[in-house]
């Protein structure tokens, strides 16, 4: 069992899948000899050659569309969008094409592709290197949206994504690329796409989060356990689409209270869906208001430090929200 960073686990998964299946290839901006701007593909060009680790033109729409065409021809593309902020030129391809192909062709044509995109703020990236984009894409049935938060999951979920016959948008919390470390077994494994993970068991209230916020939520839960004796359960949602409704409802069945945390902006963010699931199927178990802790409704994450920190949820803000809800 080795301790590994999140980005090393991402790279390991790609390396393993490329070795396992010659149909797997990588394309994106700077993924070749440079190894990606975050070094997610470091060494893979050298190992597998320019045929399989392909520097794309600087054009995100075609990274997705060419990947889709290759997937239709039974290859297994891993397309890297350098920053999730740059995915919007490919929005039409992902929404109109990638996510709809299987349905619109009556199940004839499969799009087994992975679109990897580093996302999230807190890295002095300003409006265009900090965005959370999940809310746009979790509104696209046919697509799967996955957000790993640990190195173990980053490896196992990405391997499942590569093998999945459906398109998977794989959002990597880039603030945690090197700061998040964890144990990763040497032996090969996969983590199924779909089920959420109980990151911390608890009985007093449920905190739902994903990506970097899942870490912060666990840190906050430890803090309130230590300081206030509050026993919070943290659910790392991991797969945002399809929604793991059972995991959401089952946790609240146990705790009676729900706090949902994401760094994306507030209105129509993913928390709204979690809250709606609880409204539909968890009402009778609720013992307090469903609370959301999110980024504010401003057009993006501002660059300058005080404004950025104001925008971002953090362990202290989450701990405060937990205390408020626990006291209800």
């Amino acid at each position: 069992m080795a301790i590994m960073t999140l980005i090393d686990a991402v790279r390991m998964a790609m390396d393993e899948e490329m070795a396992r299946d010659p149909r797997v290839f990588i394309t994106g901006e700077d993924v070749g000899p440079r190894g990606g701007v975050f070094r997610a593909t470091l060494g893979l060009h050298e190992k597998y050659g320019g045929e399989r680790v392909v520097d794309s033109p600087l054009a995100e729409l075609s990274i997705v569309a060419v990947g889709m065409g290759a997937a239709l021809a039974d290859l297994r593309p891993i397309c890297e969008i350098q920053f999730a902020d740059f995915i919007h030129p490919a929005f039409n391809q992902i929404i109109s094409e990638v996510s709809r192909m299987y349905y619109r062709s009556d199940g004839q044509w499969l799009v087994p592709m992975v679109i990897r995109a580093p996302y999230g703020g807190g890295i002095a990236g300003g409006l265009y290197h900090s965005q959370s984009i999940e809310a746009f894409f979790t509104h696209a049935p046919g697509l799967k949206v996955v957000v790993p938060s640990t190195p173990y999951d980053a490896r196992g979920l990405l391997k499942s994504a590569v093998r999945d016959p459906n398109p998977v948008l794989y959002l990597e919390p880039k603030k945690g690329y090197r700061s998040i470390k964890g144990e990763v077994p040497e032996a090969e494994y996969t983590v199924p796409i779909g089920p959420a993970r109980i990151a911390r068991e608890g009985g007093d209230l449920s905190v739902f989060a994903y990506g970097m916020m899942a870490h912060y939520a666990v840190q906050a839960a430890e803090k309130v356990a230590r300081e206030d004796g509050i026993d919070a359960e943290v659910i790392d949602l991991r797969t945002l689409l399809p929604v793991d409704k059972d995991a959401i409802v089952n946790s609240v069945k146990k705790t009676g209270k729900a706090l949902i945390v994401h760094e994306d902006t507030h209105t129509m963010g993913y928390a709204a869906e979690v809250a709606a699931v609880l409204g539909d199927d968890g009402f009778e178990y609720l013992d307090g208001p469903i609370k959301r802790l999110t980024g504010p409704d401003v057009p993006g994450v501002p660059f300058s430090h005080p404004m950025q920190e104001y925008f971002m949820p953090n362990p202290d803000k989450i701990a405060a929200a937990i205390r408020d809800l626990a006291a209800y």
Partner: peptide
Amino acid sequence: PQAAGLAFA
């Protein structure tokens, strides 16, 4: 661009 992807494959 999807057809370019087919040709790429």
